[in-house]
Write a protein that binds this DNA or RNA. Structure first.
Lengths: 360, 360
DNA sequence: CAATACATGGCAACCCATTGCCACCGCCGT
DNA sequence: ACGGCGGTGGCAATGGGTTGCCATGTATTG
């Protein structure tokens, strides 16, 4: 029997296996990549020899000829944002199901970093999921030209997209606030490079129109707690009784900022967030928010990407829209519960400029 | 002038560039990988042609000969846990500085998944950072034999490690609770596969010994809010006035669970967590916790890995220890502030079994 | 029994870049 | 004028699999 011990440090290749199993390298290759193409007994023998020698097929070498690495990239805007955790989980599950490995890339909310990372990774992966990309439309199309791409949380012609039903979410939030007696909603904007940010504002404009609620926008602010606290300061200068924040982190920041300044939520101001992150449930007061099916987003986007890689035409129809729901907690309440108070007590003396128009 | 338009879908290779620039492929290769080895004018010409043709060196092909992919893997136990966000940031920064790409792998707290993922990825990366690995020591050593590995949040002979000063953190927490009059601390354990979990408990045993504070352990529980809420129920059966939780998420879960049962934190029970996640600051009451330099952990581990990849011997001395600090917030308070109450009012009638001994 | 079809396995080209080694050139020193 | 030398650039092998095509050998069919 030939020696079992290979010189250490040396990779075991199909050639080594071929030698031991007394077949040609191509047969060894086929035994793994197209088992039906080789006699089952031979295949079994090869598999055993391979096992004994500790052979592992080299994915890089394989990729060189097949140009399939069995890896997909998942680009997220900010790993610090808990929203993405669930999305990642969903994507990972779908990828694993399809025998794919996910490489996660954190763009740190930076257009530049995102492009650089995508650039570097592109040639190494079979496809890309861009979750909340901060890149420009044209940059995304550029990427999509070279690799299968699915875009998450953003709609873009000619590129397959998965989005959540932002208009409906905003509408539900506005209805909810309206029912509580609020006739004016302030939208606290997040990053301008964020697609949902624009959509949410426009949806709020529409909803305001239909529901006869006035709306205005302040910001943009960083989509973080710190950003929310800064927004709170600005809110003091231009008071509001109902606030819709770009996301939960900002909403939480707003609540903290307001309470630090003696403003009560929901007594004086109602606050609604977006995303329903875990923290929304643990803050005091619990945050009313628009919940999205995070896990489903990740998994739907990834599954679609996988079919594209498998050769399906990236059906460039309308984006796939996932449903949302409003989770009502304690950060929203009826407006001005204290009778006789036209305005919350913390309104500064400076008169509020005439009611904000429905901006274009 | 030859045609500028390449057949679409076809990758541009050094051969294409060589043809256009009228040099041999090897010269093109050298123009990029060892510019000093080729005439600067030639190199410039080649670079321009390459630019015009849109040539990008194929990292896979390069890796095949150099066996360097310029990628490292960062394996984390649970992407849902916000602790890792900062670690990832630190690691990513260090990697980017060294011209490396990080591929992030989420093990979902599963030994099995972690092994599988590492297995799949190993041959594709130049090195691995295992952050809070759930694998067995032997499995880790196995991996370390094949690729440079740095282990984070775990000490392991023969493998380079980066850990935080758990003993000191526990000691500080115990001192803090002792100063508040607590003479008994209950440790709420996290995953048994977690190395810090064991260390924290043992450190608490030691600290208890020295500070003359009794200690006991309950658990293990899942290191999540849900796990903490379950722990809270068990805490009701076996009351305590001071609790040290494995991490912040459990601590928050414990606080919620307790308050749901009418127990006041910190009035009746003081709770201390570990990690100082963002949420620790936003819950009510604010969570007293042991803070670790997360970002530094990730970056230190990665930098060390990079030097190993660069050829340095993975100095297998003692682990690198990073300092911690105690962040005191509002979840800890003096024991039994209400005079005349030997025990908090919520103690069930069933007598508490004799004070837990200092277990082995 | 001849003719054809199918199941297996080998040969060799190919994927793309890297690199050791050699060849050529112009220039120097003697 | 000739040997030697540094600077450039090309040839060809290499890394580890994959795959089109052909050559067997066996099984099926008329």
């Amino acid at each position: 029997m030939p020696d079992h011990t290979r010189p250490p440090g040396k990779r075991v290749t199909i050639y080594d296996v071929a030698l031991e199993a007394d077949v040609s390298p191509s047969t060894v290759s086929r035994a793994f990549s197209r088992p039906s193409r080789v006699n089952s007994e031979t295949a079994e023998r090869i598999r055993q020899v391979a096992e004994r020698l500790g052979y592992r097929t080299n994915p890089l070498a394989r990729a060189l000829t097949t140009s399939r690495t069995q890896m997909i990239a998942l680009v997220i805007a900010d790993i610090t944002n808990p929203v993405y955790a669930e999305i990642v989980r969903g994507a990972q599950e779908a990828a694993t199901d399809g025998e794919y490995t996910t490489v996660l890339i954190d763009a740190q909310e930076s257009d530049r970093l995102e492009r650089a990372a995508v650039e570097r990774t592109m040639s190494t992966v079979d496809g890309i999921v861009l979750a909340s990309s901060r890149m420009s439309d044209s940059a995304i199309r550029m990427v999509a030209k070279q690799r299968p791409v699915v875009v998450l949380n953003r709609a873009l012609a000619d590129v397959p997209c998965v989005v959540t039903d932002n208009p409906r979410g905003v509408r539900r939030a506005a209805e909810h606030l309206g029912e509580l007696g609020h006739d004016h909603i302030t939208y606290v904007a997040g990053p301008q490079a964020s697609w949902p940010n624009g959509v949410r504002w426009r949806s709020l404009l529409e909803a305001g129109m239909e529901l006869e609620i006035k709306v205005r926008q302040i910001g943009p602010f960083s989509p973080t707690m710190a950003g929310g606290e800064r927004a709170a300061q600005e809110l003091c200068a231009r008071p509001a009784t109902a606030v819709l924040a770009f996301n939960d982190q900002m909403a939480i920041g707003i609540i903290r900022g307001l309470s630090r300044m003696g403003v009560n939520v929901p007594g004086d101001v109602s606050v609604v967030g977006f995303d329903n992150i875990l923290a929304a449930d643990i803050v005091t007061p619990g945050l009313t928010t628009v919940a999205a099916p995070l896990y489903a987003e990740g998994s739907a986007a990834t599954r679609h990407l996988l079919t594209m890689i498998g050769g399906a035409p990236g059906h460039t129809g309308p984006p796939m829209v996932l449903p949302v729901r409003l989770v009502v907690r304690d950060s929203t309440a009826a407006r001005n519960p204290r009778p006789g108070r036209a305005r919350p007590p913390w309104v500064r003396q400076r008169p509020v400029p005439g009611p904000a128009a429905h901006l274009p």
